Computed example of a mutant assay.
Amino acid sequence: MSLKDQITEDMKSAMRAKEAAKLGTIRLITAAMKQKEVDERVDLTDAMVLAIIEKMIKQRKDSIAQFEAGGRQDLADIEKAELLILSAYMPAGLSDAEIQAAVASAVVETGAAGPQDMGKLMAALKPKLAGRADMAVVSVLVKAALAPR
């Protein structure tokens, strides 16, 4: 079953169970998916759906930080609940050791020698790690791997 189909089934079960919070979050996902399909005139693959969900997760994390800084814990709690629902659709994350191993193997594969090769290295890593690792963390590890010694 594709991720898109799973999300549709989860929406139906949330409707039946009258889980309003879960249903609202899943409807946000389906709206974002339909928007992308209409804008780009494509059928979404699992990788595209994961990218949409990953973007939504990033937005929720930013919102939580802003709400907590502004003293609006009530709104931060709502965002945290949505974040949990969104995170359930993401594949299992990689450990730091696994990310470091992927960076090391990508350095060897691409022949990256210095900071000027960071773009090439990130382009090689993004498809492998998308949805499974925070790309900001990967970026820091890539910079460290390419730093002159």
Rank of each mutant, 00 (worst) to 15 (best):
P115E: 08
L129M: 03
K120T: 14
M1Q: 06
K34W: 04
Y89K: 06
L75F: 09
P91A: 03
E68C: 05
S95N: 12
T45G: 01
K58E: 11
V142K: 02
L75M: 15
E109P: 01
K4D: 07
P91Q: 08
A14K: 04
A69D: 14
D134K: 07
P91Y: 03
E98Q: 14
F67E: 12
K34C: 01
E98C: 01
P148Q: 04
K61H: 07
T110G: 02
R149G: 12
A76S: 14
I52Y: 04
A101S: 12
A144W: 01
G24Y: 00
I26R: 01
I57Y: 00
R72V: 11
D117F: 07
M11A: 06
E109C: 00
A97T: 15
A47W: 07
V42I: 15
S139P: 01
Q59H: 06
A104G: 06
V49G: 00
R27W: 01
A97R: 10
K18Y: 08
D43F: 06
G71V: 11
D43I: 09
V142D: 01
G71L: 07
A47F: 10
K12D: 12
V103C: 02
A133L: 07
M11W: 10
A21K: 13
I53V: 15
D134Q: 06
S139I: 00
M1W: 06
E37S: 00
M1V: 08
R149H: 11
A136Q: 07
D5R: 09
A145S: 13
D134G: 04
A144T: 13
A47P: 10
P148I: 05
Q35C: 00
S13Y: 03
